[in-house]
Computed example of a mutant assay.
Amino acid sequence: MNLNATMLGQAISFVIFVWLCMKYVWPPLVTLLDERRDEIATGIKNTAAAAKELELARANGESIVAEAREKAQSIIELGQQRQNQLVEEAAELAQKEKAKIIAEGKAEVESEKSKVRQELKSEMADLVIESASKLIRKNLDSKSNHELVEHMISEM
């Protein structure tokens, strides 16, 4: 009977041990396992969501870069158009300035020509009067008159 009593004592001890484990050890372990399972599930969901967000961000980034390139290209084109316009305006302004300077030069040349003509006419008139007065003073023959005129012309 000893054997049976020992077995009965061991069975009772085992049942108490199982009851204590089920009451105090098993619930915190189950809670920890449930929390860990929930964390892993949340991590997997977050990873999938993060992967989707990363793909969207890449697509958005590529579209933003493409849009920025297009804007930069349009700005460059506008700059080139403005540069061409400025060059054309500068050439046109230079042409106008050139025409103005040429016109002023021509007017100045004409003015100088007129002034010189006037001076020449005045000098010629003085010379003609002087020649005529010399001719009148010396009432010479035609040969002497001719020599006197040639002499006056050579002095000019």
Rank of each mutant, 00 (worst) to 15 (best):
L3N: 07
L3E: 11
T6S: 09
M7V: 09
M7T: 06
L8G: 01
L8K: 11
G9Q: 12
G9R: 07
A11E: 12
A11C: 03
I12H: 10
S13A: 14
S13Q: 13
F14D: 08
V15M: 09
V15Y: 05
F17Q: 06
W19F: 04
W19G: 05
L20D: 10
K23E: 06
Y24E: 03
Y24S: 06
V25M: 02
W26K: 12
W26R: 08
V30K: 15
T31E: 10
T31C: 01
T31A: 14
D34L: 06
D34R: 12
E35I: 07
E35P: 00
D38G: 01
E39Y: 09
A41E: 12
A41Y: 04
T42Q: 15
T42K: 15
G43L: 13
G43C: 07
I44D: 12
N46M: 04
N46R: 09
A48L: 13
A51Q: 05
E53A: 08
L54S: 10
L56W: 09
L56R: 15
A59V: 05
N60P: 01
E62A: 12
E62F: 05
S63N: 14
I64E: 11
I64C: 02
V65Q: 06
V65M: 04
A66L: 13
A66G: 05
E67W: 10
R69I: 05
E70H: 04
K71L: 15
K71D: 11
A72C: 02
E77F: 07
Q81K: 07
Q81V: 04
R82N: 09
R82D: 13
L86W: 07
V87Y: 12
V87G: 00
A90S: 13
Q95P: 00
Q95I: 10
E97H: 07
E97R: 11
K100L: 09
K100S: 12
E104V: 03
E104L: 14
K106L: 09
K106Y: 10
A107P: 02
A107W: 03
E110C: 01
S111W: 06
E112K: 15
K113Y: 07
K113R: 14
S114E: 10
R117Q: 10
E119Q: 13
L120W: 03
S122P: 00
S122Q: 10
M124V: 07
D126R: 13
D126L: 11
L127P: 01
L127W: 02
V128H: 10
E130N: 15
S131I: 04
S131P: 01
S133M: 09
L135D: 03
I136N: 10
R137C: 05
K138S: 14
S142D: 12
K143H: 01
N145S: 05
E147M: 07
L148V: 01
E150H: 08
M152D: 06
I153A: 14
M156I: 06
